[in-house]
Amino acid sequence: MRSPAADRRRPTLWDGLTALLVATAAFLLLAALQSEPGESLTAAVTLDGEILAEYRLEEITQPVTLTLDELSYPLTLLVEGDGVSILHSDCPSQDCVHTGKITQAGQQIICLPNRLIVSLTGTHDLDFDAVTG
């Protein structure tokens, strides 16, 4: 004998409320994990695992342009108080340029042909681990 629940095909009001509750919880968790506006960010430019330059973004008052002509594919970085972007690159895929401006801790711009990584790190510590809770 089949149960009445097996014959039901349309979502009920309780199904909708459960989905709304899960979506709300996911949104609140995402909002809690975002960088805070007052967070101190540091941009590190790394080539082959060696740090070429570091910038504390809150200390940047005027945009800083860093041109790296010695690379296989020369590129130009723009460091501003609110983030970092690659303005120009001679690499074939242009993925690093298309990444756009990074503005939050944990974000990176990677130029594989040049083996260059630009990463943002923050000094704001959360009260809990994002993985274990």
Score class of each variant (00 low, 15 high):
Leu47Ile: 07
Leu33Pro: 02
Asp7Thr: 14
Thr123Ala: 11
Gln104Thr: 10
Leu41Glu: 01
Leu28Met: 06
Tyr55Met: 09
Gly81Cys: 04
Thr99Gln: 08
Glu36Asp: 14
Thr103Glu: 07
Ser40Cys: 08
Leu20Trp: 04
Asp15Arg: 01
Val131Ser: 13
Thr123Arg: 11
Gly83Val: 02
Ala31Ile: 10
Glu39His: 04
Val64Leu: 12
Lys101Glu: 00
Ser119Val: 11
Ala19Leu: 15
Trp14Ile: 15
Asp7Arg: 14
Thr24Gln: 08
Glu36Met: 09
Leu13Ser: 08
Thr76Lys: 04
Glu59Pro: 03
Tyr55Val: 03
Leu20Phe: 11
Pro4Met: 10
Pro37Arg: 03
Asp69Arg: 13
Ile60Asn: 01
Phe128Gln: 10
Asp69Trp: 11
Leu30Tyr: 15
Thr65Glu: 14
Ala105Tyr: 00
Ala19Ile: 13
Gly106Asp: 04
Pro74Gly: 06
Arg115Ser: 08
Ala31Leu: 13
Glu70Ala: 15
Trp14Glu: 12
Ser119Ile: 04
Leu75Trp: 05
Ser35Lys: 07
Cys111Ala: 00
Val45Tyr: 00
Glu39Cys: 03
Ile86Val: 12
Thr42Leu: 08
Ile117Lys: 00
Phe128Asp: 01
Ser85Trp: 00
Cys96Ser: 03
Leu17Cys: 03
Pro37Met: 05
Leu116Cys: 03
Ile86Gly: 10
Glu70Tyr: 15
Gln104Met: 11
Leu126Asn: 14
Leu78Arg: 13
Asp15Met: 05
Leu75Ser: 05
Asp82Glu: 06
Asp82Lys: 10
Phe128Lys: 01
Ala26Tyr: 11
Leu47Asp: 00
Asp48Tyr: 09
Thr61Tyr: 10
Pro92Thr: 07
Thr42Glu: 11
Thr123Asn: 11
Ile109Tyr: 05
Leu120Lys: 02
Thr132Asp: 08
Thr132Leu: 09
Pro113Gln: 03
Ala105Arg: 07
Asp90Glu: 09
Ile117Leu: 09
Thr123Gly: 09
Gly133Ile: 01
Leu21Val: 09
Ser35Ala: 11
Asp129Gly: 06
Ala5His: 15
Asp48Asn: 12
Leu29Gln: 10
Ile60Phe: 04
Gly122Glu: 01
Ser35His: 10
Leu52Ser: 06
Leu120Glu: 00
Thr12Ala: 02
Thr61Asp: 11
Val22Arg: 01
Val79Asp: 06
Ser89Tyr: 08
Gln108Pro: 02
Gly106Ser: 06
Gln104His: 13
Thr103Ala: 02
Leu29Asp: 11
Gly49Ser: 01
Pro63His: 04
Glu58Tyr: 12
Asp129Leu: 04
His88Leu: 04
Phe27Met: 14
Ser35Cys: 05
Leu29His: 14
Ala25Gly: 04
Leu66Pro: 08
Leu116Ile: 06
Asp90Leu: 01
Pro92Leu: 07
Leu47Thr: 06
Leu21Pro: 10
Leu71Lys: 07
Cys91Phe: 11
Ser85Cys: 05
Phe27Trp: 15
Lys101Phe: 00
Gly83Gln: 00
Thr103Cys: 04
Val79Gly: 04
Arg2Val: 05
Ile60Pro: 02
Arg115His: 07
Leu71Trp: 03
Pro4Gly: 06
Ala105Leu: 04
Gly81Leu: 02
Pro37Lys: 01
Phe27Gln: 12
